[in-house]
């Protein structure tokens, strides 16, 4: 388990404070709560995108909270995906790869493309992809460099129900295959029921429930 301590971020009329929170080393930890509860604020703090947020995040004797963004080795898929529109799907996926350091990048690329069913669209521009395809490209991009954890911010919110179900299964299977723990941020109860190995419920910036089952 990794442990987040003293996560604090203050706004004018709203404060997010987490004293002590454990995130699983494998499987899905789901941060669940309504809109405006502070979920994305927590994600930004964990990722290092918010310089005003303070936290300590112990992972194997390293405090990620003191490291700059890229050095935290996290795979992040933000809500709006942030794909690079001038690149193809393949270029997007391979963007984080350092080809000299990452020897098996081609094999990893093929595993991800097959696992996320992207074989037919990797050469296309991301602007020509459907919503579901774009989301899978963003997930492949976040996983390609073998991050220590995958962080997903409301990944299924823009998909229709049928696509949501298949996407959940696909991600679950792939992350188990890659042994990559996932922190999923969602307001959707179904995500909790289907995916969660641990549920942290948040409301008004504070944890109100933290348990293995809901």
């Amino acid at each position: 388990m990794s442990v987040v301590k003293k996560l604090h971020r203050e706004f004018k009329e709203f404060t997010v404070h987490i004293e002590d929170w454990e995130i699983l080393d494998e499987g899905f930890t789901v941060l669940w709560g309504p809109s405006g509860a502070g979920k994305t604020t927590i994600l930004n703090a964990l990722v290092g995108a918010d310089p005003k947020a303070h936290l300590s995040w112990r992972v194997h004797d390293r405090d990620l909270g003191t490291l700059p963004m890229g050095a935290r080795q996290l795979g992040v898929v933000f809500q709006d995906l942030g794909l690079f529109p001038h690149m193809s799907a393949q270029q997007n996926i391979l963007f984080p790869v350092n080809k000299t350091k990452h020897e098996n990048w081609q094999q990893d690329f093929e595993t991800l493309v097959a696992g996320l069913q992207l074989s037919e669209c990797v050469q296309r521009s991301v602007q020509s992809l459907s919503g579901g395809e774009r989301q899978r490209v963003a997930i492949a991009r976040a996983l390609i460099y073998r991050p220590r954890m995958l962080l997903l911010d409301e990944p299924f919110s823009s998909l229709d129900e049928e696509l949501r179900q298949s996407s959940r299964q696909m991600i679950q299977k792939l992350c188990a295959q890659l042994h990559c723990p996932v922190l999923l941020i969602t307001h959707d109860r179904t995500d909790v029921d289907v995916l969660a190995d641990k549920v942290t419920q948040i409301s008004r910036g504070a944890i109100v429930r933290d348990s293995l089952t809901l």
Binding site: M69, G70, G82, F84, N98, Y145
Partner: peptide, 21 residues
């Protein structure tokens, strides 16, 4: 801005973000 935020979350150099994004 959002694209740069995403790019910075990866372990890549600023030079790469600048030249490719």
């Amino acid at each position: 801005r959002q694209q740069v935020l995403v790019a910075r979350s990866f372990p890549v150099s600023w030079l790469k973000i600048f030249s490719q994004v």
